[in-house]
């Protein structure tokens, strides 16, 4: 038996998770609209995380994925099931087999699956004869091939996959409000991968980024990747808020602030130059870049204040009720 979802096309433009989810949900008619809308509604656009040494893994180290992705998809009104863990744990072979079955079921229903390659990609086909999955990574035209037996094995120590189900409609205003609340939470939570404190999130991520650039011996590829992702996300936020004009005055003001921020992006981009076919931060313009980022942080901080004012007007049961799930240190 084999299944191949033809209409599913993933392109790397945003965070890899966003790109994956967008490809899957649009192909399955579970989402309509531009990618920045998905990025905004899920709160993914607002996630910003930086390792002290500006390592490339920063971009996807925005927290424990289960805790970050579930609320993101919840806000779209879509049921989602995911599983993840560490490959070295003794129960992995069992969960791997379960995952293979769940992925095939999802594909049989015509819905692609998010998979940590790494980065996040989309499983869009399987073949029982060859016992393989076909995975798009959004960068190459050809699909990657992964044996059922190798599902979840990669050079990081963890595995992850996520499937999607039915949908309920949620009022647009409620979704936007929830996305603002996710943004506030991300801005205000400095560490989302405790007990590790070498990765900062939200407001503190700006500090790590500037300090990392300043001290000089940062990871060159990582720095560019972080900056590119940051600039893309800020543009997404601006476009997302642009479409949400007219609901709350404060949101219109926040849109203006992100507009100013987005206007600085070309100058930030100028601080990255091509060197022997690779893009690198121009070390002679680091101070300028830090200055731009510092201004951006101030603008964003003001925008988040506006979000807070909006949020305060409505009851927030989700965040005023202590849950029975969520943040925990990896065990």
């Amino acid at each position: 038996m084999s299944v191949f979802l033809q209409d599913l096309v993933m392109k790397r433009e945003s965070k890899s998770y966003t790109d994956s989810v967008y490809a899957i949900l649009t192909a399955a008619n579970l989402f309509q609209g531009p990618k920045y809308l998905l990025s905004g509604l899920t709160g993914m656009a607002f996630k910003f995380s930086v390792h002290q040494q500006l390592l490339p893994m920063s971009v996807s180290a925005y927290g424990q994925w289960g805790n970050e992705h579930k609320p993101a998809i919840d806000n779209l009104g879509i049921l989602t099931i995911f599983d993840a863990g560490r490959v070295r744990h003794h129960t992995f072979p069992y969960y791997q087999q379960e995952a293979v079955n769940a992925v095939k079921s999802s594909l049989d229903c015509g819905i692609g699956v998010v998979y940590w390659i790494p980065e996040f990609g989309v499983i869009h086909g399987y073949d029982d004869g060859d016992r393989v999955f076909y995975i798009q990574d959004g960068c190459s035209e050809e699909s990657q091939i992964v044996l059922y037996d190798n599902f979840g094995l990669n050079f990081t120590t963890f595995w992850y996959y996520q499937v999607f189900g039915d949908k309920v409609d949620i009022a647009r205003q409620d979704m936007i409000l929830e996305s603002l609340r996710l943004a506030i939470l991300d801005w205000e939570t400095p560490f989302r991968t405790l007990p590790n404190t070498d990765i900062a999130s939200g407001k503190l991520a700006y500090v790590y980024l500037c300090q990392g650039l300043k001290q000089g011996s940062f990871n060159t590829h990582g720095a560019v990747y972080i900056l590119d992702s940051y600039m893309t996300a800020r543009t997404e936020i601006r476009d997302y808020l642009g479409d949400a004009q007219g609901i709350w005055t404060e949101l219109d003001e926040a849109y203006q602030l992100y507009g100013l921020l987005a206007a600085m992006i070309p100058r930030m981009n100028d601080c990255i130059r091509a060197h022997r076919g690779e893009r690198q931060v121009d070390l002679s313009r680091v101070d300028e870049l830090i200055e731009l980022l510092t201004q951006a942080e101030l603008l964003e901080d003001q925008a988040i204040s506006h979000f807070r004012h909006i949020s305060a007007r409505y009851p927030d049961l989700k965040r005023t009720t202590i849950p029975r799930w969520g943040s925990h240190t990896p065990r």
Binding site: L79, I81, D166, V168, D174, K318, W325
Partner: peptide
Amino acid sequence: TASQAAGFQFEPTFPLYQKQ
């Protein structure tokens, strides 16, 4: 090995999870 799920009943997606 086990599966589990949890959430708030006041969330819009609750009926989907109830069915699941």
